Simulated scan of single mutants.
Amino acid sequence: MKKEKVESLEQAREQIDAIDHAIIELIATRQFYVDQAVRFKHSVQDVQSPERVESVISKIRLLATEQGVNEDIVERLYRDMIHHFIQRELKEIRP
């Protein structure tokens, strides 16, 4: 997404609203693929996979740094999102 200087608070808010829409759409797409991935997992350990979680966190912290975004905020957001997705997956594999 291209960053452009705005000339008013209204323009800034319009851009923020558009970004929020895109973020939600991306989270929904991520959830879709998490739902697909659960088909290939056979145990609670497969779902929880702490090493995978830490790998994702390391990657997103690096991406945040590259973009000049606070890594701690991004990590908290991702940990919350991952926790939610893990809980969602656990419901699928538990009897």
Rank of each mutant, 00 (worst) to 15 (best):
R30H: 08
Q31Y: 12
Q31E: 15
Q31H: 13
F32M: 10
F32L: 08
F32C: 06
Y33I: 02
Y33G: 03
V34A: 12
V34G: 04
V34Q: 06
V34S: 09
D35S: 10
D35L: 11
Q36Y: 11
Q36S: 06
Q36E: 13
Q36I: 07
A37V: 01
V38M: 11
V38N: 08
R39C: 00
R39S: 06
R39T: 01
F40K: 11
F40S: 13
K41M: 15
K41F: 05
K41V: 04
K41S: 08
H42D: 10
H42V: 04
S43T: 15
S43I: 15
V44H: 00
V44S: 01
D46H: 08
D46V: 03
D46F: 01
D46L: 04
V47I: 12
V47S: 00
Q48R: 12
Q48S: 01
Q48T: 08
Q48N: 03
Q48M: 05
Q48A: 04
S49R: 10
S49G: 10
S49A: 14
S49K: 07
S49C: 08
P50G: 00
P50E: 01
P50Q: 01
P50K: 04
E51S: 12
E51F: 04
E51Y: 03
R52H: 14
E54L: 06
V56C: 09
V56K: 07
V56E: 09
I57R: 02
S58L: 12
K59C: 03
I60L: 05
I60K: 03
I60C: 03
L62A: 07
L62Q: 06
L62T: 06
L62Y: 02
L62S: 06
L63N: 05
A64L: 02
A64Q: 00
A64E: 03
A64F: 04
E66M: 13
E66F: 05
Q67W: 03
Q67H: 11
Q67F: 03
G68N: 07
G68S: 06
N70W: 00
E71R: 14
E71L: 05
D72L: 14
D72K: 13
D72G: 11
D72Q: 14
I73K: 09
I73G: 05
I73Q: 11
I73E: 11
E75L: 06
E75H: 11
E75I: 08
R76S: 15
L77A: 14
L77D: 15
L77I: 15
